[in-house]
Design a protein around this nucleic acid. Structure first.
Lengths: 153, 153
DNA sequence: CGGCATCCTTAGGGATACTG
DNA sequence: CAGTATCCCTAAGGATGCCG
């Protein structure tokens, strides 16, 4: 990937990558979203599985609800006391490809080969799921075949 | 996406998402990598285009070189003085899909509609480039059709 | 140009203890 | 169980100034 122009000063102010970090938050937010994407719903499970402390977990959950990536519902199973649960919204589900891409990179470049990391399966056929680039004309695209052009999307 | 198991305690220690953040670094590292993916090579340009301060930029460049995502070369054009430049390694290029996925999310959910953000083009045909999920059997996969299974990849 | 040194402020995050 | 309240430490990051 490269610019076709000589890249003028760049309006860093409207960079969608920076904007994503500004909305989603820090590392810990991605870990909370990871757990939510795995189906974790309850506070205590987020704490246990994310590896984050309670205050941080609580803060991220609150913030992600405020940003609209998670929804909080209080529900009560018959005969049980009320519980809170957090589930992904459409906005939150839309970030799952980012999580998968992060996962793929980490598995390849940041973990020891052979570390147990689980796998993503296509529910329809059981085959492994991966991210990829493709163009609107339907071609598979390599990173080196993508060119960034500044200006209106 | 959801777990098919009840998700036991989770070995957060070997989470590839967390590992990616641990290797790549914080938000500013992604902005530096963004610029590198656009073809930015020189220190002053990284500073001007990333919107980061010089010390932070210098620190990220040094760290990303140390982690093997960037390579630093000193080169001298004929009749010019020596310059340093930073270019992506294969390990660094491999993270571009993460950047693209972050970019797509931000454009959709974190920026005002209509903000100028540029676009990615397939060099072969000029069509826009997007990320997507697919399975090893070749099917396009929706987020909701991916299931995470713990255990060896 | 390509940095590093210093200083400062804010944000991220863990530990612990406590409350509804 | 689902948090909140403190306290404390470290990391992130900007501003400024200096140096090869």
């Amino acid at each position: 990937m490269s610019t076709s122009t000589a890249s003028p000063p760049a309006p860093a102010g409207s960079c969608p990558i920076a904007a994503t970090f500004d909305v989603v938050g820090p590392r810990s937010a991605f870990l909370v979203l990871r757990e939510a994407s795995f189906g974790t719903r309850r506070f205590a499970d987020f704490v246990a599985r994310s590896g984050l402390s309670e205050p941080i977990t609580a803060g991220r959950l609150r913030q992600l609800v405020a940003e609209g990536l998670l929804e909080r519902h209080t529900y009560r199973e018959p005969g049980q006391r009320a519980r809170d649960e957090y589930t992904l919204t459409a906005k939150g589900r839309a970030i799952v490809p980012v999580l998968i891409a992060l996962r793929e990179w980490g598995e390849r470049y940041a973990l020891e080969p052979g570390e147990p990391v689980g796998r993503l399966e296509h529910v329809d056929c059981g085959a492994g799921v991966r991210t990829g680039l493709h163009c609107d004309a339907g071609h598979a695209v390599e990173v080196t075949d993508a060119s960034f052009v500044r200006g209106p999307a």
